[in-house]
């Protein structure tokens, strides 16, 4: 990324990198765009903008490094700069408060000890999708990056421009919020102990 020296690719190298290293991630990237914007048209625009930017800045991409993380970072930045401000997303939560809270004694408190595996297995509709979408975008993002895309702490830290410690605490908080939400749905479905 920005710390690597610029390359000077030939046109055919550019075309090959784009096709072989960038395009294979297009479905993951679209999924990420959709989960960020929660709108199919916005997701399409965001994806297109991101791939055009990736091509324009292809000389900053070093072959042999993680193309997927590089692309996800561009997409995330495009989302923040171009889309987030026009969406009606509520303002960011106060992370300092979250960080303090999760560095406190309460860190491993079980928020929803009674949510059951069996209950989750009965959630065959849109519950999980709605639960995920209901989270603040920053929490939603770490769940997607870690659980769906398999990014590691250091990769997420680079994609999101935050320290690894923040990645960890944000993930932990996100998992608990997701469980709380699922627990609410379970209650609505009529599970007494959920």
């Amino acid at each position: 990324m920005e710390e690597t020296a610029k390359q000077q690719y030939t046109d055919s190298e550019r075309a090959r990198i784009f096709e072989d290293e960038f395009m294979p991630h297009i479905n993951s990237m679209y999924n990420f765009a959709y989960r960020l914007t929660l709108d199919e048209d916005d997701a399409k625009d965001l994806l297109q903008d991101t791939y055009l930017k990736a091509y324009r800045f292809i000389d900053s991409f070093q072959q042999g490094t993680n193309a997927k993380a590089w692309l996800f970072r561009i997409l995330k930045n495009s989302f923040i700069n171009d889309y987030r401000k026009r969406s009606k997303e509520p303002s960011k939560v106060d992370y300092q408060e979250v960080e303090n809270y999760y560095n406190s004694e309460d860190v491993d408190r079980q928020i929803t000890p009674d949510l059951r595996v069996e209950t989750l297995q009965d959630m065959i509709g849109d519950e999980i999708s709605n639960a995920l979408n209901s989270l603040d975008v920053d929490f939603r993002t770490v769940i997607i990056l870690c659980d769906l895309e398999g990014f590691k702490y250091d990769e997420m830290a680079k994609i999101l421009d935050i320290p690894i410690g923040t990645v960890r605490s944000r993930l932990h908080r996100a998992r608990n919020l997701l469980k709380e939400k699922l627990s609410e749905y379970a209650k609505k479905m009529g599970y007494k102990n959920a």
Partner: peptide
């Protein structure tokens, strides 16, 4: 529980393919 949530996420939230 977390694994069940992850399975749900993977089956329901990871399948938006680019048109």
């Amino acid at each position: 529980l977390e694994m069940a949530i992850r399975d749900l996420l993977k089956s329901k939230c990871g399948n938006h393919e680019a048109p």
